[in-house]
Design a protein around this nucleic acid. Structure first.
Length: 415
DNA sequence: TCTGGGGTCCTAGGACCC
DNA sequence: TCTGGGGTCCTAGGACCC
């Protein structure tokens, strides 16, 4: 009789992904503190600056690696509302890291090189490393641009050394093709694999087996559990629970009493390393949105024109996104962030599905009328939810849009 | 010198229907 | 006078993740 294969799930996380992709283009930055973020500013268009300094020459993408270091903009003197999306390991030495405001980072490491984000480039490398993985191990779940879960269970060789051999193979295949490194954790499930991938960063492999729960997982802070954020962690700490082991020691009924049935039960299972979620290879989007933070806070009345223009543009962008990806939605929503960082949302569900900028703009405009507008606005967002594919929408009994009045249909109803 | 943008999922109350 | 309960959809807010 054939033995049941042991479930082996991997979590693969690219190391400092955005920054590492930039380093492929600008190898001269290797080992230096580099920070990706900001965006908005165009003065860091390097080829443009190069052309300005040496107008007699033509500069192409092939010359990027030759750009001298002093052409790169530094963090020093940065003003604006941007945040760091990724920092190189050299930059992290200075205490800067993801989600930190660039102005704060400029204080900590003024000499760091600042590069704007280039999503097209990251998406390209994202597709490349993911296709390498799925060629080797087809059961792969996307978790954003730089992360995936992989089910090793049924992959030939996936059981050798608890998954380490296959992890090594994938790591090498990605590096050989892209020059990028990643970290992999292999464990009995997604929860533990996710934690394991962090053990040996960068360019590490960690294997967690059933028996490793107590020595490897229980000493960790609860915050290391994917799903326990700052709020839950604070609440746990207020009850004297700091480590996963301390969480595991609590009676499940006590957890349910304090965190509710669902969360309480989940916390208990998580602490005991139990997680039966499958690796899901495909999923449908639930919503699409566009939002923007203004350079300065805007006043609903005084900056009405500017606000209106941004509002319309956001609606057009969401509509474009929907159309490009082939979806329609019927719940239109807005999001406002005020100068005090409080957030208000309003939404409205239409009787029909839409992907038109005008339709979205009209519904979003109605939502805006229901929102409080006394405080200054920092951010405005537009969202379309309750999505279905445009194909499926065609099969619906109710029309996609309110149809134009067609007199012929009335005259010839059976045609 | 505070704090981006794009998502998912959950909760909770109210409307409405059976 | 009294009085159910379940199910679904909608809306608003919030936690969390990458």
């Amino acid at each position: 009789m054939q033995a049941e294969p042991i479930r082996r799930i991997a979590h693969l996380d690219m190391d400092a992904f955005y920054a590492s992709v930039e380093l492929l283009r600008y190898p001269q930055l290797k080992g230096l503190p580099v920070v990706i973020g900001g965006g908005r500013r165009r003065e860091d268009d390097l080829l443009g600056r190069l052309a300005q300094a040496y107008p007699e020459q033509t500069w192409t993408q092939d010359d990027l690696a030759a750009i001298p270091l002093d052409f790169f903009p530094r963090l020093v003197g940065y003003t604006g509302r941007g945040v760091i999306t990724t920092a190189t390991y050299a930059a992290r030495q200075f205490g800067v890291g993801s989600a930190m405001g660039l102005m704060k980072a400029a204080k900590l490491c003024p000499q760091a090189i600042l590069l704007p984000v280039d999503f097209a480039q990251y998406r390209h490398y994202s597709q490349r490393f993911k296709s390498i993985i799925s060629d080797i191990a087809p059961v792969m779940e996307n978790r954003g641009v730089d992360e995936v879960y992989i089910d090793f269970t049924e992959v030939p060789g996936g059981q050798r050394e608890g998954g380490r051999v296959l992890a090594r193979l994938i790591q090498k295949a990605i590096f050989d093709d892209t020059g990028l490194t990643c970290s992999v954790g292999v464990a009995p499930n997604k929860l533990l694999a996710k934690m394991a991938s962090e053990f040996n960063k960068p360019h590490g492999i960690s294997v967690v087996l059933e028996g490793d729960l107590q020595p490897l997982i229980w000493p960790l802070a609860c915050r290391k559990i994917n799903g326990i954020g700052p709020k839950s962690d604070e609440k746990l700490q207020s009850h004297g629970i700091r480590t996963i082991g301390e969480l595991a020691a609590r009676d499940p009924d006590w957890l349910i009493a304090h965190f509710g049935n669902k969360t309480g039960t989940w916390l208990h299972h998580a602490a005991w390393g139990r997680d039966s979620r499958p690796v899901v290879t495909s999923s449908e989007p639930v919503s699409m949105s566009r939002e923007t933070t203004f350079e300065r806070d805007l006043h609903a009345v005084r900056d009405k024109a500017e606000l209106g223009a941004v509002f319309t543009r956001l609606c057009e962008q969401v509509a474009q996104d929907l159309q490009r990806k082939g979806y329609v939605g019927k719940t239109i929503g807005i999001k406002l962030r005020f100068d005090d960082f409080s957030i208000v949302t309003r939404d409205h569900t239409l009787p029909h599905y839409t992907d038109s900028a005008q339709g979205i703009r009209a519904a979003a405009g109605q939502c805006l009328k229901r929102a409080p507008l006394a405080k200054r606005l920092r951010l405005l967002g537009v969202r379309v939810g309750s999505l279905i594919s445009a194909q499926d929408a065609k099969l619906l009994p109710s029309p996609l849009e309110t149809p134009p009045h067609d007199t012929n249909a009335l005259l010839f109803p059976d045609d």
